Deep mutational scan, measured.
Amino acid sequence: SLNIVTVTLNMERHHFLGISIVGQSNDRGDGGIYIGSIMKGGAVAADGRIEPGDMLLQVNDVNFENMSNDDAVRVLREIVSQTGPISLTVAKC
């Protein structure tokens, strides 16, 4: 069973999320979106629970499971540009 973790980040303390995301597209185009790298000083690094290779399932109320990489990057950028905490739900691989 997948270990699902939801992390809520206070964006007032850390001014950027600090992750890159990578799409693992397979033949069907539904390989999922994964955490690529984590930048020091960002909210994700400070929290420490999300790691490279984790699968990104949801951000706030947006489901990322069947999203293309381009869409995921765009949607994540829109969410980060808003104010307030950000909740990331990942599956630990």
Rank of each mutant, 00 (worst) to 15 (best):
R77I: 02
D61P: 01
T83L: 12
C93E: 15
E65N: 11
I4P: 07
N3P: 04
F64T: 12
D30V: 08
N63H: 09
K92V: 05
L76G: 07
F64N: 00
G84Y: 06
G29E: 14
G84V: 03
V5N: 07
N60C: 06
I79C: 07
V62I: 09
I86T: 06
G53S: 06
F64E: 01
T83V: 10
D30P: 08
V73A: 14
E65Q: 05
V75N: 13
V80K: 12
D71L: 06
L56A: 01
Q82H: 13
R77W: 05
V90F: 03
R77E: 08
G32I: 04
T83P: 09
M11Y: 10
V62R: 07
N63M: 07
L88R: 00
L56S: 01
N66T: 10
L57G: 00
L2Q: 12
V73C: 14
S68V: 13
G31A: 08
D61S: 09
R77C: 03
T89F: 14
T89S: 12
T83M: 07
V7E: 02
T83I: 10
S81F: 13
N66P: 07
G31C: 04
T8D: 06
V7R: 06
R13W: 04
V80E: 11
M55Q: 09
N3A: 02
G23M: 03
V7H: 02
C93S: 13
G18R: 00
L9N: 00
G84D: 15
V75M: 15
M55A: 12
G48C: 04
S68I: 11
I21N: 01
Q58I: 09
V22E: 08
N60Y: 01
L17M: 05
V5H: 03
E65Y: 03
R74S: 11
V62C: 08
S68A: 11
V62A: 09
M11F: 07
N60L: 00
T8E: 11
L9V: 07
Q58N: 14
N3D: 05
G23Q: 10
N69E: 10
G29M: 13
N3W: 02
G29Q: 11
G32C: 04
G23F: 02
D61E: 10
D71T: 14
N63G: 12
L76A: 14
C93L: 14
V73F: 04
S81E: 15
L2A: 04
V5M: 14
P85R: 12
I86K: 11
R77S: 11
V7P: 01
D70A: 07
I86F: 03
V59Q: 00
A72I: 03
G18W: 00
Y34N: 15
T8R: 09
L56H: 00
L2F: 13
M11D: 06
G18Y: 00
R77G: 11
R77P: 10
Q58H: 13
R13S: 10
S81P: 13
D61Q: 07
L76R: 03
V62M: 12
R77V: 01
E12S: 10
